[in-house]
């Protein structure tokens, strides 16, 4: 059984436009899959349907044998602990310290009272430090997040996702706000998460070259429809032009 199955997924925010149209694909455990496509193609929406940050209108998302669309509140919480999420703008609490932000990833496992009181076990704290060390930012553990560079903040974001002990990590343009060096560091970390820890990664990317370098498989999205789904090596100029249409040229000059 695949880790993630998306069947006939359709989504619209309003009556006029359908953002996603009949999207079908599956992701196996341990895969590193990139989603590429022009701005507005629906990449972010697709990712947010998987952990139901937006409601699903049509079709099904099956994650770990659970029908995501039909989960009740409590089960949805439980589902979300299994899915980490990494954002373009890191989405940390800037005034809090690095370690506090990392531990936020454990809230899914806590009762309301435990979470509000900030009760974390020794193991959880050790795990947080272990992850910070793994991503090379343990010396910043007690700094406020707004004092860190973009690349460092994104690594905090990754730690927060990893401490959830997830089966899948969704990354919504994790390197779109970073310089090339930091981008490489982040992509290398994401890749090693999949290779070393066996955690599946589904990554939205703007840069086709990066997607080709890092992913096992690429999904091309255009106007809410999948127009390419296959091994990275099979993605040729022709397919890229098909995914981006005329917009590809604009993308490069920006």
């Amino acid at each position: 059984m695949s880790l993630l199955q998306v069947e006939g997924l359709g989504k619209s925010y309003n009556l006029e436009t359908k953002v996603l149209k009949d999207v079908n694909f599956t992701v196996e455990t341990g895969e590193f899959v990139s989603v590429i496509g022009p701005s507005g193609a629906g990449k972010s929406t697709l990712l947010r349907c998987i952990n139901r940050m937006v409601e699903i209108n049509e079709g099904k998302v099956i994650f770990n044998n659970l029908d995501v669309g039909s989960l009740k509140k409590k089960d949805l919480r439980k589902l979300r602990t299994d899915i980490g999420m990494v954002f373009q703008h890191y989405n940390l609490v800037p005034r809090l310290t690095v370690i506090e932000n990392v531990l936020h990833g454990r809230f899914g496992y806590k009762t309301t009272l435990q979470g509000v009181l900030g009760r974390f076990s020794e193991e959880e704290k050790e795990q947080a430090f272990f992850l910070l060390q793994k991503l090379g930012i343990e010396e910043h553990a007690y700094k406020r997040c707004d004092q860190l560079s973009g690349g460092q903040q994104q690594r905090v974001g990754i730690c927060r996702a990893l401490i959830q002990d997830p089966k899948l990590i969704l990354c919504d343009e994790p390197i779109a706000s970073l310089d090339p060096n930091s981008s490489k560091v982040i992509m290398d970390h994401l890749k090693s998460i999949t290779n070393d820890l066996g955690i599946t990664c589904l990554v939205n990317l703007h840069q086709v070259e990066v997607a080709q370098d890092y992913s096992d498989r690429i999904i091309g999205l255009r106007k809410g429809e999948i127009v390419f789904d296959g091994k990275s090596a099979l993605l040729r100029e022709e397919q890229i032009n098909h995914i981006y249409g005329t917009e590809r040229r604009e993308l490069i000059t920006v």
């Binding site: 979300r80 980490g84 954002f87 936020h104 809230f107 959830q164």
Partner: peptide
Amino acid sequence: EALQATGATYAHIVNKA
């Protein structure tokens, strides 16, 4: 948004973020 995605409750989000 990030905390919602981790499965945090409303009280967690308000109090800790």
